[in-house]
Design a protein around this nucleic acid. Sequence first.
DNA 1: AACCATCTACGACGTTACGTAGTAGATGCT
DNA 2: AGCATCTACTACGTAACGTCGTAGATGGTT
Lengths: 134, 134
Amino acid sequence: MASEEKAPRPLGDLERLVMERLWAAPAALTVREVHEQLADTRELAYTTVMTVLDRLAKKKLTERERDGKAWRYRAASPREELAADLMRDALDRAGDRREALVRFVGQVSDEEAALLREALGRLEDHAESEERAG
Amino acid sequence: MASEEKAPRPLGDLERLVMERLWAAPAALTVREVHEQLADTRELAYTTVMTVLDRLAKKKLTERERDGKAWRYRAASPREELAADLMRDALDRAGDRREALVRFVGQVSDEEAALLREALGRLEDHAESEERAG
DNA sequence: AACCATCTACGACGTTACGTAGTAGATGCT
DNA sequence: AGCATCTACTACGTAACGTCGTAGATGGTT
């Protein structure tokens, strides 16, 4: 682990749009399906969607599996996982982590702060269980 | 507030290098100073450094003030502030914040988790003081 | 005042990512 | 065999960024 510096470029607008469709879908989608879903938002050539999906796959953001002669794409990881990764990267870029975290926490809404406490709480429980078990 | 979607592009490599020098400096630096400081890391034309500094200024990442005929540049905000902003942006892109935070906390090191708790603790104290005062 | 070192302003070029799409050929169904 | 569909590959415009050069402004020195 710890390969360092590998900041995932933030997706382009179209790429994000496509990813959102994939994340929202209950199952892997074909190019055609994504294309159709985007129809009401944006008029794009079928091949445009294909290209984007393909590029996303090359970036490991989507995975694809055969379905007849077509490919079915799905997000490689959940949206929240990507968000968490980006948060990590951002934190790694800070010089003083403590300071960065303090500032981050300072920007967060009350609700988010509560969610953070909750998340940290779970971590604690986890650690305890492992302690007991280990 | 809440202008939404304004993801700050992650800096390019050179841009980051330059910002790091500015963040590390105790005071605003001239183009020449930055150029000299980078000398041991990378051989760049003086104007290259100037261009980068200028672009950073246009992006509001640096501020500049006159010093004789030269400009002195300094980071517009501390490194940790930028990191915190990026964390915020990342979080905003998540669908389910709770989930994103849980995952983020799950990736964080023990030390970082402790720092987070500490930061959240301060927040609490803050809230209490305000409560008493308000 | 003329001169020289230095700085800035601005333009330029190559590369890469991304939005966008066309063409050719593979593939599978009827 | 034929048609509809899908993929693969190529391509082009734009914008960001790395990288620099030239021209002209500026200020200190003689």
